Simulated scan of single mutants.
Amino acid sequence: MAGARIEHLVTSGTFSLDGGTWDVDNNVWIVGDDHEAIVVDAAHDAEAIALAVGGRALRAIVCTHAHDDHIDAAPQLAARTGAPILLHPDDLPLWKQTHPDRLPDGELADGRVLAVAGIELTVLHTPGHAPGAVCLYAPALTALFSGDTLFAGGPGATGRSYSHFPTIVDSIRDRLLTLPGDTVVHTGHGETTTIAAEAPHLQEWLDRGF
């Protein structure tokens, strides 16, 4: 694994959509080694994220989706580090609500492989919370970075614009619950979980209709 590891920081700010604004704490994940890294979701505080990256080469700023709390610091972090911002194109309408004058630098597509620190992260397109939502699967780290698609306790919210409950359930069932049970799910907010911990509850989610 060439020393690859997962680092974590929590940043605080707001999430705004459909005319409402809420205070939120976001998980920011850094995957890499002593020499290079990628950032998963540049939320709220570019300075704190840049300090956590330190002198390492930042290879990419990966956006799991384009809700403003997950991308608000991305352009500033990109300007500071030179790293490209990567986003699934289905989330461009959401992105443009926050950054109308600055497009992402590259596209994420289902099956794309991102390499860093001697390991690979595979992009899984998992729409539902947002049309272009993705997760990143890193088998060498027994890790899934799920953004707001899957949390400890159930699917991400689907009550606002651009979201759809049946779609997120399909994404979780078909793309995530098929992964090894010991895969640790590193979420966009809150605590980590595992695939094995969440898999038994699929029918409950369907019955509750989140």
Rank of each mutant, 00 (worst) to 15 (best):
S161N: 03
L121S: 04
L86E: 09
D72G: 00
R112N: 10
A117E: 02
A73D: 10
A115R: 14
D105S: 08
G147I: 11
G153D: 10
D72Y: 00
F145G: 12
G153I: 10
A152Y: 09
E120L: 06
T122M: 13
L150Q: 05
F165L: 11
L136V: 05
T142P: 01
A140Q: 14
A133E: 15
L77D: 07
R80K: 14
G154M: 12
C63Q: 07
H70T: 00
T126K: 06
S163A: 15
A78Q: 04
T126N: 07
P166M: 07
G132C: 13
V113S: 07
T98I: 01
L94D: 02
A83K: 09
R80D: 02
H99F: 08
Y162H: 14
H70L: 09
D110T: 04
L92R: 12
G82K: 05
G154N: 07
V123E: 14
A83R: 03
H65L: 12
L58Q: 01
A152R: 14
V169I: 15
F165P: 06
L94Q: 09
I61F: 02
S163Y: 03
G118R: 14
A133I: 04
L94R: 13
D69C: 13
R80Y: 00
F145V: 13
Y162I: 05
A130Q: 06
D101I: 00
L121T: 04
H129T: 15
A152N: 15
L121W: 04
P93K: 12
I85C: 04
L58H: 01
F145K: 05
L108H: 14
L141K: 09
V116Q: 08
G153N: 10
G111R: 10
I61T: 00
E107P: 00
A73T: 02
L136I: 12
P131F: 04
V123R: 15
I61L: 11
P155T: 11
D105P: 07
P100D: 12
G106M: 05
H99P: 08
C63H: 01
S146I: 12
D68R: 03
T142I: 03
P166V: 08
T167R: 12
Y137T: 05
L58P: 01
A79L: 04
